[in-house]
Design a protein around this nucleic acid. Structure first.
Lengths: 344, 344
DNA sequence: TCCGTTATCCAAACCGCTTTGGATATTGCT
DNA sequence: AGCAATATCCAAAGCGGTTTGGATAACGGA
């Protein structure tokens, strides 16, 4: 059973005031080295640990970061979200912060933020999955709640702090690689395009095509939650065309796996008869590494993004005066087994 | 900007004592209906919300549930873990609880629990991924921290609360199905067997074989983190045997996908030349549904498990006197496209 | 030796809410 | 009418820390 010793008892045992004990433990200078040592030892042997609620109340800081995720979070986001969370969580615990996650009804997201602010549940929040018509940042600004965006809010790049990768550039490079390999019928299996990242990826895809005087064929572009069947079903359909694509650019490993399944079903060899480039978030349960990875990919660790976003946020909380900062990461373009020259 | 109105100010505006206002808002009977209404309205228009830290300090309950996850959480658990968390999170927010997640250094797990207890960070915790030599439940008992296990702790089934599925039975049934289809060379691609769930699944697999006078071939059993390459690589190797397996029993959809990839590479048709049964946690980004699912599987929603585990825990916290309870769920055995009679 | 510093430590206020122990006004009964 | 029971409401005491505003003692320089 936890004895539950508190500051008062501890100070009595030491014949000291609560003030002194508190200061000794928190490293304030107005306490002698000897006393500090005595306090530390007694605290240790008695197993004293400050009650976090009390401390939070007294200091006014909740020492927690909130993440609110809508109940029906879009499917594809799931594993990516977790990986991000894991990264952010590491940073938090390194800095003594708690991570609190609120899973809320879809229409309750705003209310959740309001509660976090009014009940002082967290000192800041992270915005996940910014969309095209985003307004969470306005709400948070109004609430005076510091925040960092994972991704970018179109039109608010300079007034918000964010961590994002260069989605457009990544997909532009990937498309160029496919074009260089001689592919001209390239399919795009993208995430939901009202999400900012997907929107940018498509822009990159189209830009590369336009650059070469080509234009994207609407029949070869699909957009949805990036599940495995999404990849398989659409690839099957497209491969049945009279003029089928010879390459696929896919926004997620999960869907890319679906594409390979489709290819297998119709007897096409991935990397030979058909090429695939996927974005790789470096999810730990879906490794795509080794000398020659399974998939040629644009890769960027979302876990790292989580760490960095958390760092930016904690920094923002510690120095509210600092203006917004952001981290704009490049994705690596890595050659794997899933690409090869177009068959003619 | 959040005005940050508090109880004191609210009560002054109403010409009432804090006591009365507090009681009115919290539904205590010693306040007239009229007053209660007046208070509610004023609170609403002024946007009053109680400071959660203060409330927690005063009530002594932190209204939060802790989940501590080691930094290097085994790969396969990742997506499953998130789905569980999502389920639990729904229950928490329905009951006004917060979910706090601590991502800690592997050797800091015990310390994390101690801190949760001593600093009163949470009213209870969930134990994830119980292993064979488990002792977290002892620590938590010693700390007086209520908990529920996701899975079972061998030897502590009656003294702890837990939510688990009948892993052994599920895999025994799956194996029997394969045997009924005429397969006799069956491979088992399992999770890490020091994890309780994997241990039980293997037991079920072996029991079914033994029942028919067969015995498991060690060359056909593998155990590791359930990644996609784990499935592919091992399947490739086994399919190269002189006496290759004709069926695979796999502990995770992710690895099962790897097996199909391997099959494709060596020109075998899944469901015809080779059969696969996988366990399906019903992950949202890996749907295996439809009239005829891709994979024949043993299915059990881990999200549901999360909801239920959370319910048990909140119940345990509310009624500490109640003894341990548990939920032992059956997995469904669902026929999909990945199984067929053994080719002779 | 005297006095302004400096080093240590403490009493008490405060953070914002809940809850105990009344006080006061009504109501119900005899 | 007289009195116990009931309905309402309040002052004040926590909850367990942090922090302000001194008080006291030891120190250092003229």
């Amino acid at each position: 059973m936890s004895k539950g010793i508190n500051l008062k008892e501890l100070s009595q045992r030491l014949n000291l005031s609560q003030t002194t004990v508190s200061r000794a433990l928190n490293g304030y200078p107005e306490v002698s080295a000897e006393t500090r040592k005595r306090v530390a030892e007694m605290a240790d042997t008695l197993g004293y640990a400050p009650n976090s609620q009390a401390r939070r109340l007294a200091t006014g800081r909740s020492m927690a970061i909130g993440h609110v995720i809508p109940r029906s979070i879009h499917e594809m986001m799931n594993p990516i979200f977790l990986e991000f969370i894991a990264g952010a969580g590491e940073t938090y615990s390194d800095h003594g912060y708690d991570m609190i996650i609120s899973v809320v009804e879809d229409n309750q997201e705003e209310e959740a933020y309001r509660q976090i602010a009014s009940r002082k549940k967290a000192d800041g929040v992270i915005i996940h999955g910014p969309a095209n018509n985003e307004n969470r940042h306005r709400l948070l600004k109004e609430l005076g709640l510091p925040f960092v965006v994972h991704g970018r809010i179109p039109g608010a790049e300079t007034e918000t702090s964010w961590v994002d990768l260069k989605n457009q550039r990544a997909f532009e490079r990937a498309t160029n690689l496919l074009l260089d390999l001689g592919h001209s019928r390239i399919a795009l299996l993208n995430g939901l395009e009202h999400m900012d990242f997907a929107h940018r990826r498509r822009a990159g895809f189209e830009a590369a095509l336009t650059e070469r005087g080509l234009s994207a064929d609407p029949a070869l572009m699909r957009s949805a939650d990036m599940t495995e069947p999404f990849g398989c079903d659409n690839a099957l359909e497209m491969l049945g065309y009279a003029d089928p694509p010879t390459a696929f650019l896919v926004s997620s490993m999960i869907s890319a796996i679906g594409v390979t399944r489709a290819a297998g079903q119709v007897g096409l060899r991935t990397g030979k008869d058909i090429s695939i480039i996927t974005h790789d978030d470096a999810l730990s349960f879906l490794p795509n590494s080794g000398e020659v990875p399974i998939f040629t990919c644009t890769r960027s660790s979302v876990r790292y993004a989580g760490q960095k976003a958390a760092e930016l946020l904690l920094d923002l909380i510690a120095n509210p005066a600092n203006g917004p900062t952001s981290l704009h990461m490049d994705a690596e373009l890595i050659i794997g087994q899933s690409t090869g020259p177009a068959q003619t």
